[in-house]
Design a binder for these strands. Structure first.
Lengths: 158, 158
DNA sequence: TATTGTTATACTCTATAACTATA
DNA sequence: TATAGTTATAGAGTATAACAATA
C-alpha cells in the first residue's frame, strides 16, 4: 500500500485535474456562445433528448439542481422555443417538458461541436495515451462516486 | 494521425476531466471550511508564502484576477490577521502585502490537508497508474497553455 | 499621462423560504 | 399532509467604470 508521493501542489493529481477541468468548462462555454446556449441549458436539453419528456422536478433531480432554479431555466428555454410545457393530465401539478424540433436541432448542433472540444482537451496525446487517460479518469470518477453524465457544476454550491 | 473516437459525452475526456475537476474543487472547499479559509484566500496566501512580498497588482496578475477584486480579498485576509499592508516606500502608490506568522501557520495547516485531498482524488489507482495519470494530465495542461499553479477558477468568467 | 489602490454600480447565480394548485 | 411549480428576497461573485494619490 503506497501513499501518494509528496509532490508540489502544481503537479498534484488534484490540482492538475481541477485546473484542466476549469479550463475545459471555459472552452466549452466559448464554443457554445455563438449558438446562444449556456452549459446549463445544454445540460437540460441533452437530458431531454436522451430520456424523452420529464417533469421539472425530474430534470432537477437528474442534474442535481434545485427545482427552484429549474423554473427560470425552463422559462428561458421555452422563450427560445426549444422546449414546451405540457400539463401532465394524470397529475395536473406537474408539466411534461418536451423538446421542440428547434430544441432537437440545438442539441444536434452542440453535439457536432463536442469532437472539437475533445480534440482541444486531448492536445498532443497519442491514440493510446488518450484511451489510457480516459480509462484512468473513468476509474477516478467511479471511485469518487460521481454519477455518469451528471456534472457537479450544475448542482451549485450547496 | 488518428482523430478522437466518437464516444458518448459521459465518457469523453473533456466531460470526465471537468466532472472530476469540479468535484475536486468541492472537496477542497469542504476540507478548507473548518479552517475558515476559502480556496481564493488560500491561492493568495500560498502565493505569498512562495514568492515573498508582492503588491496587490502583482498578486492579481499572478493569479489571473482583476486588481479590483483583490482589494476585498486582501481586506478579508488582513481582517483575519493573516497578512498586513505595508506602504512601499519606493513607490508610495502600492502596498507590500506580507504574510504574518498567523498567515504562515494557515498555509502550513492547509498544506497538511493536501495529501488527504490527493488520496481522495486518486481513489483506487495503483502507484503506477497514479504516476501515469499525473504525467498525462501534466501534458494536457501544457498543451492547453495553462500556467503551472495558476487556477482558471480564480480568474473569473471574463 | 500612466499606474495602484479604491469605491460604486449593475448583473449573474445561488440559497432559502413561502405561496398556489393539486394530490 | 405532501408534492410540483412558482415567486420573492437576500447573499455571494464578478464586471465595468470612475475616482484619488502617486509616479
Amino acid at each position: 500500500m503506497d501513499s501518494p508521493a509528496a509532490v508540489a501542489y502544481e503537479q498534484s493529481l488534484a490540482f492538475l485535474v481541477s485546473q484542466i477541468g476549469a479550463r475545459t468548462v471555459q472552452i466549452f462555454a466559448e464554443l457554445l456562445a455563438p449558438l446562444g446556449v449556456s452549459a446549463r441549458a445544454y445540460g437540460v436539453l441533452s437530458n431531454l433528448a436522451a430520456a424523452s419528456t420529464q417533469s421539472q422536478q425530474q430534470l432537477a433531480d437528474a442534474l442535481g439542481m434545485h427545482r427552484n432554479n429549474m423554473v427560470g431555466l425552463i422559462d428561458e428555454l421555452e422563450g427560445r422555443g426549444w422546449v414546451h410545457r405540457h400539463r401532465n393530465t394524470a397529475d395536473r401539478r406537474s408539466f411534461d417538458i418536451r423538446l421542440t424540433d428547434a430544441g432537437t436541432g440545438v442539441v444536434e448542433r452542440v453535439n457536432e461541436l463536442l469532437p472539437t472540444l475533445e480534440g482541444t482537451v486531448r492536445g498532443g496525446l497519442t491514440g493510446r495515451q488518450y484511451e489510457t487517460a480516459r480509462g484512468l479518469l473513468s476509474s477516478m470518477a467511479r471511485d469518487l462516486g460521481l454519477r455518469p453524465g451528471v456534472h457537479p457544476y450544475l448542482a451549485g454550491r450547496r
